[in-house]
Simulated scan of single mutants.
Amino acid sequence: MTGICAGRVAAVTGAGRGLGRAHALALAAEGARVVVNELPGASVGEARRVVEEIRERRGEAVVHSGDVSTDDGAATLVATALDAYGRLDTLVNNAGILRDRMLVNLGEDDWDAVVAVHLKGHFLPLRHAAAHWRAEHKAGRTPQARIVNTTSGAGLLGSVGQANYAAAKAGIVALTLVAAAELARYGVQANAVAPAARTRMTEHTFAATMAAPQHGFDAMAPANVSPLVVWLASAHSAGVTGQIFAAEAGRITIMEGWHPGPVTDKGDRWTPKEAGEAVRGLLAGARAPGVVYGAGGSGD
């Protein structure tokens, strides 16, 4: 097949439905051979259907059944790509779950489950893929490798009722920045996308914006996010790394992150009163932070 990903092999986690499915189909449409990951059990059937769709369109794809929040699941994801196609060029980390609770009602199990799937489920596949690419570089075969992580507006601004999810997604941003810095020497680029789209995870969040498409454009379709992911996954994105993008409908935004704002320096130790007065003055000239998603509401 031809396309901007022709000849490349991409692994997509959580690709049986929603955003992952859309990414897998879009990557295949641009010529990539795709490893479609899903959890063992019922979800594997969804992954198989995605593979069938790709093959019906004359693309190439295989299923990987494994929990990428475990070391074995992440390792076999990379091994599946190498066994099936002899290479791995792109890792799209997408798998995720929700366990929403207000902070005072959020149990340890719900915290651990969400952090494991999102944050650990990004780290482990990334680590195994990076080890492979480092070995390729050391063998004189420096890759044009790409990592595309999935963060969220909740991780950038916070989200009421989603402390576990927001913390994990914020962690993915930091993980992306570290990966971009550490892996550049091996020919690896790492970026993250914060998508807004209609999936099982977001059907309640975006309920108010899920009206029938107007003028033939469904603004909440997961496929709207995939073109950016595909481009970042391709060799055409050379030189773009350590960036965080927001993608929604037809809009792409570069998120600029934390930068030093107003500053003052006494040149000596502050007293608590002086420090407080200094902070008040700095805040008067600082840009207001973005509004936390759902702020102003209440509930248990």
Rank of each mutant, 00 (worst) to 15 (best):
M1S: 13
L91Q: 09
M220F: 13
K138W: 11
G281Y: 01
V117N: 03
D71Q: 15
E182F: 14
L157Q: 05
I4V: 10
Q214D: 06
G158K: 09
G7Y: 14
R198K: 05
S69Y: 08
A284K: 07
N105W: 06
A223F: 01
S226M: 04
H204T: 11
P272M: 06
H204K: 10
G267T: 01
L126C: 06
G3S: 04
H259D: 01
R134V: 15
T151M: 06
L88C: 02
I254C: 00
V35E: 05
E136L: 12
D67S: 06
G276P: 08
A116N: 12
M255D: 12
A84H: 04
H23R: 07
V92P: 02
T176G: 06
W258V: 15
R49P: 00
V178M: 13
N105G: 07
A247F: 08
V148S: 10
A168I: 00
A207Q: 11
G121K: 01
A221N: 08
A10G: 13
V104H: 10
A212C: 01
P143S: 04
E256C: 09
W270I: 15
G290R: 02
A170H: 14
A6W: 01
A249L: 07
A235F: 08
G3D: 03
I147N: 12
A295T: 12
G59R: 03
D218T: 04
L82Q: 09
V229I: 15
A166S: 10
R141L: 03
G7W: 15
R21S: 04
A179N: 10
M1V: 06
A168K: 02
I252C: 00
R185D: 14
V292G: 00
G216D: 08
A74E: 07
P125K: 00
A79F: 01
A113R: 15
N93Y: 05
A295R: 12
R200A: 08
